[in-house]
Simulated scan of single mutants.
Amino acid sequence: MSTSNRLKAPLVLLLTLVLLCAGVAVLVGVFGLLVKLFGHA
């Protein structure tokens, strides 16, 4: 049990980091699309 608990913390941290990166990437992509759309208009 101790090993699984020891591995759980870094795994959760890694997952949160991945989710944060994905969210930032999506936000940047949407922002880029908006800038492109309004830049041409």
Rank of each mutant, 00 (worst) to 15 (best):
A9K: 10
T3S: 05
T16I: 11
V12F: 04
F31A: 14
V18M: 04
V28S: 05
R6F: 09
S2D: 08
L20W: 12
S4P: 00
M1K: 05
V18I: 11
G39H: 11
L27V: 14
K36N: 12
L33E: 14
N5M: 06
T3E: 00
V30K: 07
V28C: 08
T3N: 00
G23K: 02
L7Q: 10
F31P: 03
S4A: 08
V35Q: 13
S4Q: 03
A22Y: 07
T16C: 11
L33C: 13
L19M: 12
L15E: 01
G32D: 13
V26P: 00
G23S: 10
F31W: 13
V12G: 00
C21T: 13
L11N: 01
C21A: 15
H40T: 14
K36R: 15
G23P: 03
S2H: 03
T3F: 03
S2Q: 06
T3V: 05
L37Q: 13
A25E: 07
L17I: 09
K36A: 15
L20T: 15
L34R: 13
G32S: 15
V26Q: 04
L17Y: 05
V12P: 00
G32A: 15
G29M: 03
K8R: 07
M1N: 07
A41C: 08
T3P: 00
A9Q: 07
S2L: 04
L19G: 06
R6S: 06
G32N: 12
T3K: 05
M1I: 03
S4E: 06
L13N: 04
H40F: 14
A41E: 14
V12R: 09
K36Y: 15
G32T: 12
L13I: 04
L15R: 01
F31Q: 09
S4W: 01
V26F: 12
A22Q: 10
R6H: 02
C21R: 08
L33A: 15
K36H: 13
L33K: 10
A22G: 12
G32L: 13
V24E: 02
C21G: 09
R6G: 01
L20H: 05
V12H: 02
F31D: 04
L13C: 03
G29A: 11
T3I: 08
A41D: 09
V28K: 04
V26G: 04
G39R: 14
L7V: 02
S2N: 05
C21P: 01
K8Y: 02
V35A: 14
V35E: 11
P10D: 08
F31G: 14
L14G: 01
M1W: 01
L17A: 10
V30C: 12
G32K: 12
A9S: 08
A41Q: 12
L19E: 08
S4I: 08
L34D: 05
L15T: 02
V26D: 03
P10K: 07
N5T: 03
A22C: 09
L13K: 07
G39L: 13
G39W: 13
L19A: 15
L7E: 14
C21K: 06
T16H: 00
H40G: 03
G39K: 15
G32V: 13
L33T: 13
A9Y: 06
L33W: 14
K36G: 09
L20R: 04
L19C: 08
